[in-house]
Amino acid sequence: MKYVRLGSSPLEVSRICLGSMTWGLQNNQTDANAQLDYAQEQGINFIDTAEMYAVPPSADTYGQTESIIGNWLAANPSRRKEIILASKIAGPGFSYIREGSNISGKTVVQAVEASLKRLQTDYIDLYQLHWPNRTSPHFGNQWPNTINYTDVNATEQTEQMLDILQGLDKCIKAGKIGYCGLSDDTPWGINQYLRLSEQHNLPRMVSIQNEFSLLHAKDWPYLIENCINEDIAYLPWSPLATGLLTGKYQNGARPEGSRWTFMQRNGLFRDTVNSSKAVDAYLDIAKQHNISPAKLALGWCNQINGVTSTIIGATTMAQLEQNIDAFREPLIQAVLSDIQAVLKQYPMPF
């Protein structure tokens, strides 16, 4: 396993990050324990979760994933120091999470306290803002004029960011979190936080996790260039496009228990004609080169300049083993060339 520095922090994280959002709905405690044990055996030291999980989110499963991780930590106390544990505060929109309120300095402190109790630990290594208070160009909102940026009050948003940083600062000074990061944000969001941190001597964002895959590469080049030059770790989530890139949803298939058989908060917006055509092309490349579709998609993501650690998830041990194996050997140039041709044909299929 290779390890890299997490942005401007001194933390060394594995190039693979174990995602956990299925734990508490599609997976139970026993499943999660097996995944955590296996991941550690393979050298993975980076675990990502969120107060909102399990996914799809609901009032019934809110906090369940953190509780499952907390039970594992309680049963294996010596392992806490061996992992970099990341969690996230939910943004606005859920009535059952602080009445749907915006993220603020006050709610950061509240959310950290609640997560620590569920995780049964004294500190969280990386604490992230799950999504910004303003609408961001993610989850199908990246198309022109989907968001009216001229309607956004930048001064108000910046004041909220400052308040959030002050809340994070309190948690860091109290030893409850180590470092802070972003999720589902933009270059403007990154740079506003960096400017405020410098102006007010407040904690610096060290990472951002955004959706990134062969079907959704919009962060290249502009946001990733920003991350490299500002020493922000870039953490792709959903590198398999919610499983779409494995081919399991082709031709309308819906395997029993798979993610697409559950309610989707934003609908199946990734399920488009062009996505299907792109996946068919990537499946053909994988077959021609005798590699798994997972290796094709994950190997491509791993070799992107600027990617720090790729967040993977699985509902079965077989999937987890295959996903981790995908990182063992880099893709050869012939595969990358074939991928590039398809990527140019279908640059943003959903």
Results as ranks from 00 to 15, higher is better:
Glu156Trp: 07
Pro187Asp: 09
Phe327His: 02
Ser292Trp: 04
Thr316Leu: 05
Asn323Ser: 13
Thr242Trp: 12
Gln345Asp: 07
Trp23His: 12
Thr65Met: 01
Tyr346Arg: 04
Asp37Val: 06
Asp184Ser: 12
Glu82Cys: 08
Lys248Arg: 14
Ser183His: 11
Leu296Asn: 02
Val108Ile: 15
Asp122Glu: 15
Leu296Trp: 01
Val13Pro: 01
Asp151Pro: 00
Asn33Trp: 11
Gln110Asn: 11
Asn33His: 12
Thr121Ala: 09
Glu211Phe: 00
Trp72Leu: 05
Tyr62Pro: 03
Pro236Glu: 02
Met161Cys: 15
Ser309Met: 03
Pro293Met: 10
Val108Lys: 01
Thr155Gly: 10
Leu73Val: 12
Phe327Met: 02
Gly7Glu: 09
Pro236Phe: 00
Asp231His: 14
Ile339Gly: 05
Gln128Gly: 10
Thr22Glu: 11
Glu99His: 14
Gly7Cys: 10
Ala154Cys: 06
Gln40Met: 15
Ile97Lys: 06
Asp48Phe: 00
Ala74Pro: 03
Pro56Phe: 09
Leu343Cys: 13
Gly43Glu: 04
Thr310His: 02
Gly313Glu: 03
Gln250Ile: 14
Lys117Asp: 11
Ile44Met: 05
Val108Tyr: 01
Tyr193Cys: 08
Arg15Leu: 05
Asn226Trp: 04
Ser104Ile: 01
Glu12His: 10
Tyr222Glu: 15
Ile190Cys: 07
Asn229Gly: 05
Lys88Asp: 01
Ile83Asn: 03
Asp271Gln: 07
Gln345Ser: 11
Ile68Glu: 00
Tyr53Phe: 12
Lys81Trp: 01
Pro92Gln: 06
Met317Arg: 07
Ala217Trp: 11
Ser292Gly: 07
Pro236Val: 03
Ala90Tyr: 04
Leu119Gly: 00
Gly19Val: 06
Leu162Met: 06
Ile285Tyr: 02
Ile228Thr: 06
Val108Asn: 02
Pro92His: 05
Asp31Ser: 10
Leu240Ala: 04
Asn45Pro: 06
Gln250Asp: 09
Met21Glu: 10
Gln333Thr: 12
Pro293Lys: 09
Ser238Gly: 10
Thr261Gly: 10
Glu156Val: 03
Leu85Thr: 08
Lys344Asn: 15
Thr49Met: 06
Arg259Ser: 03
Tyr38Asp: 07
Phe350Val: 00
